[in-house]
Write a protein that binds this DNA or RNA. Sequence first.
DNA 1: CAAAAGACTCAAAACGTTTTGGATTGCGAA
DNA 2: TTCGCAATCCAAAACGTTTTGAGTCTTTTG
Lengths: 340, 340
Amino acid sequence: MATLKEIGAELGLSVTTVSRALNGFPEVSEATRAKVQETADKLGYRPNRIAQRLVTGRSGMVGMIVKIKPDMSADQTFFEILTGLTAALSARETDLVLAVDQEDDPVLSYKKLLERDILDGFILNAPVMNDPRVDFLRERGIPFVLHGQDRPEPDYPTYGIDNAAVSADSVKLLSQLGHTRIGLINGELSAAHANDRLAGFMASMAALGLKADAVRNEASLESHGYVQALDLLSRPNPPTAFICATTLIASGVMRAVRDRGLKVPGDVSIMAHDDALPLTRAINFEPALTVTRAPLRDACEPLANILIDHLNGTPARDLQVVLNAELIVRGSTGPAPKEE
Amino acid sequence: MATLKEIGAELGLSVTTVSRALNGFPEVSEATRAKVQETADKLGYRPNRIAQRLVTGRSGMVGMIVKIKPDMSADQTFFEILTGLTAALSARETDLVLAVDQEDDPVLSYKKLLERDILDGFILNAPVMNDPRVDFLRERGIPFVLHGQDRPEPDYPTYGIDNAAVSADSVKLLSQLGHTRIGLINGELSAAHANDRLAGFMASMAALGLKADAVRNEASLESHGYVQALDLLSRPNPPTAFICATTLIASGVMRAVRDRGLKVPGDVSIMAHDDALPLTRAINFEPALTVTRAPLRDACEPLANILIDHLNGTPARDLQVVLNAELIVRGSTGPAPKEE
DNA sequence: CAAAAGACTCAAAACGTTTTGGATTGCGAA
DNA sequence: TTCGCAATCCAAAACGTTTTGAGTCTTTTG
């Protein structure tokens, strides 16, 4: 509970000098800086954030709104993001204010939170295509960072992986292994990333002259993977390889393949995109899963830093990061089976 | 962005008067209050929370730390609590700062958050018996409210239901229906409420002279209910009634009962405690489930208010609420089957 | 009719920090 | 000597609110 004034009184210095000493300003001598630092430590000084925020005009809080599905199911990715984000933000003296959105209108929760007038910016996750939240915040000039891409040429900070490239890389690997009938078990198309995966898949299949007629887009569930793979495998010319949106889907697909009496990777190759969630780890599959890998956890620190840099004045065009996922080849992919 | 000063300038009043007019102080005339209110509305005045907090010495933020299990599974109850809590807190101009705890040491996250020195208090949920977080916060004089009971005679604010009574009520109902062999499929004993349920069960069974030898304590999962019920039903003298810790467990128990070719409630009665989670609704069971009911959602507003009242000076002993769950008899319970 | 009581209002201090615009010192250069 | 220039330091203002302690009227009371 020590204050700048108390430190100053202790040393016979002004608050100005104490403040500058502690904040590393150049116009204070090293000798005094050392003394100030020492008594600050001795008195257990911690800057009063509220006072700092009053004078800087910033609240030091950013918002994130969690969209909850009608069934109240917790998105597996949510805790992963939440964990990393709070840690990364707190390293930069920023707090996360969380709100839960159950409204039909996707921007209503943002309006409500903004009315309280205490947030410096927002972190937007799980975007849909042309996300209405983006338009809403952009119109009002509220800073935010988007996790992912919701449109081709954003003029706001974004951070995410190239989801079209994820599909392209996967198709490329499989086609090099000789596969020509490749299935895509995608996530729900309401999500922007699922759109990009689909677009990337269609484009690279077309570029190779392959027919992309084994595509399914549904929720990321084990059961979805199972059902869709079973269905596709009962075709006259079933796919010899599956690209799965998530490891969860992949586990369903693998179960389906085996239920049909087929071998992985002998008869069917399976690969997935891997967010590196602790629940379903690609490495624990039997055989270990070939993946495009981009740990969600890794996105948290960049997201936090991008938003805070943006708040500090860095222009949006310097804060648009699109990474490529890493391709990790493991045992679940192999050469296409010989045609009989 | 209007300030008190601007409103004052507009009307030729001092900031003092404007502040008092808006905050409903008695020493300002109704005429001026009306004028002040009017121009405040006209200018779109919103009090600067940061300035308020600086002068009141409070941050307006309370913390909650979410404990995540090693498998990163999201507790079903978490979103329920989060939703209600943010709403209730924001009604009292308070924000929720969330942190995620993955440490082994249960108090480490609290230490870290306290170091940042910006929280007025904490909301503690999912207590274990003699919760170490309680001891930690109590020692340092940090205000908090506990959702539930972790020890017999707390000297801090608490809010929760009487879990021993939940069991007692359930046992009473079933014994009045003639059941003598009653099973308890409880949650994990690490949770304080599971302890209380167990204690209440043992006590009331003993009071009735009944043998309490069909008790299982494990995670609240459908599969747990299924497995344990199957096991208990294969005994020579199987239970004729089950008390389940959650509706999720109850659904597993019901499946087990039917897999054994038994009828509910003809052969076996089933009841559960119902937190009123949207996922598994007691009323959607076939037959509808008899429950002791205490919606988790209903706890959020009291929790928020208790903590804030406590911060405002209300002593802890006036803020200890123990409610009784409502007993709702539906179709899943019936008279004990006649012994052959 | 004076004094007390009430009704209403205000200036100023306070919260703890950052930042602006000097002020003071010592020292080498003109 | 005097001027300029770093190198240090400081007083005061500012952020927007709440609260304290008085002040000015008007009305009631003895």
